[in-house]
Design a protein around this nucleic acid. Sequence first.
DNA 1: TCAATAATTCGAAACATGTCGAATAGTGAT
DNA 2: ATCACTATTCGACATGTTTCGAATTATTGA
Lengths: 107, 107
Amino acid sequence: MSNSDKSNLYTTQFKALSNPHRLTLFRRLMSCCVPGTVCNTDEVTRICVGDLGEGMNIVASTLSHHLKELNRAGLIQMEREGKTIQCWVEPKVLTELASFFAFTESK
Amino acid sequence: MSNSDKSNLYTTQFKALSNPHRLTLFRRLMSCCVPGTVCNTDEVTRICVGDLGEGMNIVASTLSHHLKELNRAGLIQMEREGKTIQCWVEPKVLTELASFFAFTESK
DNA sequence: TCAATAATTCGAAACATGTCGAATAGTGAT
DNA sequence: ATCACTATTCGACATGTTTCGAATTATTGA
């Protein structure tokens, strides 16, 4: 992956997290992590679309749109499971984003 | 700081980093870090506004607007030094953003 | 096959953002 | 005081984003 591709990915990911509703959704899915540790690969939280939007004041189509954005940005995964669609965060996504702020990379 | 204030700060900061020009500016200022380590507090890179925009295809007023956004988001500091205005990144900003992705926080 | 549930797609309206050029303001030197 | 240099503010325009409701698709069970 070229440097400009990496930059594009970061801007896309940060844009996805720049909306309050999307940040809320992402944080709900991030809760697979034990405080003070890196995410446990073996126990990733999976939540279906409907449950994810629970208590958020948005209609289904808006929720769907936001999850699609998070997915397009590579921040969350989505997979149909019977009648529902399950969502989760791959731990690698978190470690890579953390490393963006921790290390110098070429400009 | 309340949880919703923290969320607002994060969305503001991610929004600031979601623009390609602003991400480029931020990364130029991030280069105070030694690869594989946390930023060195004693040697923060300071670059003036004009030099920061060097080689980016934007006019001065646009550059100024973007730096103001980064500053409003708390991502960069700005200080007049004679005829120029110097910009830099406080290392604490980087460690706090890295920790967002490394740890679980309350939803 | 039909109905119920879960979720997506589409189009439209309101709102926010990125960009520029022109005008303005601060600083230091002549 | 005036000039050159550095940077910001302002207004305008084009482009993107957020949101909703209505229509559509996918899946399962009766």
